[in-house]
Nucleic acid binder design. Structure first.
Lengths: 137, 137
DNA sequence: GGAATAATACACAATGTCGTGTAATAGTGT
DNA sequence: ACACTATTACACGACATTGTGTATTATTCC
């Protein structure tokens, strides 16, 4: 007998709306077929690239400044240019960034409009998490 | 007043708008301070949890069905319950999912409204990537 | 109480990822 | 051609992550 009306069953604690008017409007998740394994792997690859504090700071700084060179980014993050270049290549492989050469320097910029809102949402989730943790006695 | 012509720069190939009306409206990236290392680590932790094909399929299926038990998810993904449970715990640790016990079964659901749009955006980015790759001769 | 089912905890081998160090490539100026 | 700077390519050791197998906990039914 189901007797557990579980008070733990809280409501949606987030402030975020469930949908966002981005990209070609897709039907709700309920009306879509289950994600195929191959598509899941592709999405995984995208999140994997963002699952690194160095790359997140790189993207964040490039979003702020519009464009930046490798050495400038290295100096900003306090890292070696090799390490930064490594991560920039990974970000470019997924078409999140694009590069442009000008003399000795290579300028990187964000090449896809989805990247900014993606980071925005993650920051939002981080705030939600912080809120919930502090409000749990 | 922020400039709004930045998206039309060059090769912005994405359809996605630069901003989304989600969460407390934040100022544009240009007007925000550089992301601290600690915040970057927190955001990394969030993306890291989504950087796994199993967890992505779990979240996607839970979004579709609203709620699901461990064994049901295991059967749907063709995996062992231990593996599924492992990943569900990771998703719950970041407050993306919450669980509710009903008899022998434990039901998982999405606990934060940011999760759906986050996955949505990633799917959008995946489509963009596919589009670009096919259109490069 | 005892058996059966659902879910989780834990240790482990295989695999993946990170920054570093070294070497190579691209471009500028003399 | 040469020296110099900026960036990238590549191999390596340190460390993290995944699914599996085994054992344990939670709950229902007899």
């Amino acid at each position: 007998m189901p007797r557990n009306d579980s008070t733990k069953n809280r409501k949606q604690t987030s402030i975020c709306p469930p949908l966002l008017g981005c990209c070609a409007p897709s039907p709700a998740f309920q009306d879509r077929p289950l994600l195929s394994f191959l598509d899941a792997v592709k999405v995984m690859a995208l999140f994997k690239v963002l699952a690194n504090d160095t790359r997140i700071r790189l993207v964040h700084h490039i979003l702020r400044s519009g464009e930046a060179t490798v050495s400038e980014l290295a100096k900003t993050l306090g890292m070696k240019p090799q390490a930064v270049s490594n991560q920039l290549v990974r970000l470019s492989d997924t078409r999140m960034l694009s590069s442009r050469r000008e003399g000795n320097n290579v300028y990187y910029r964000v090449a896809n409009g989805c990247v900014a809102p993606l980071l925005e949402l993650a920051l939002c989730l981080m705030e939600d998490e912080r809120r919930e943790k502090s409000s749990e006695a």
